[in-house]
């Protein structure tokens, strides 16, 4: 190792270190580049300003407070629900395909026999039980449902104190089958 190599090695090394320091240093002086979000403040629109120290630099519509308001995407698989219309009617016929397709035994359907006006016997659901604690959100129940009775909502705050609270009955009290769904 001769002297020239020795010195140029040092200089090259120092240069590479300075390039690295430029990256972190430039972010230090550009606080509006901060990407983290402040949960749960970001659920509301009027986020308290002091949660965003970098505010002094940001003007206009690109203020972090506005940008950082939480947006839940519509397809997010947060929780399985059974949509009901305003007349408290759902589309579930109680066929049990979702129960069959669920890989984890998350869904349990308790069905009853109903007698319609014209005397025919018909299957209907008594309870559509959904055990969220076991659900892996694969989406097979929603995809395979022949009458589109199930859907996912994008709620995500499911923390509870007791595991049994995660067991839900999806059909509402007193709900009936929607007309025209077989």
């Amino acid at each position: 190792m001769n002297v020239v190599e020795y010195i140029s090695g040092i200089l090259k090394g120092v240069k590479s270190l300075l390039i690295g320091m430029k990256v972190t240093g430039s972010y230090f002086f550009r606080p509006w580049k901060i990407v983290t979000q402040q949960y749960p403040e970001n659920r509301k629109k009027d986020v308290k300003w002091f949660y965003f120290l970098p505010l002094w630099k940001a003007h206009g519509k690109d203020t972090p407070a506005e940008r950082k308001q939480i947006v839940m995407l519509e397809r997010f698989k947060g929780e399985l629900i059974m949509p009901h219309n305003e007349k408290n009617e759902h589309k579930c016929t109680g066929c049990g395909i979702c129960e069959m397709n669920c890989p984890n035994g998350t869904i349990e359907i308790i069905s009853i026999q109903l007698t319609t006006e014209d005397g025919k016997k018909k299957r209907a659901i008594d309870k559509h039980i959904y055990r969220m604690g076991m659900c892996t959100f694969c989406g097979l129940c929603v995809k395979t449902c022949p009458s589109d009775a199930l859907a996912f909502t994008n709620t995500f705050e499911h923390a509870v104190f007791n595991r049994t609270k995660l067991n839900k009955v999806l059909n509402k009290e007193g709900s009936t089958l929607m007309k025209g769904v077989e």
Partner: peptide, 9 residues
């Protein structure tokens, strides 16, 4: 690359 790849360490 600037932060890590080129870094002499």
């Amino acid at each position: 690359d600037q932060l890590l790849t080129g870094n002499v360490i």
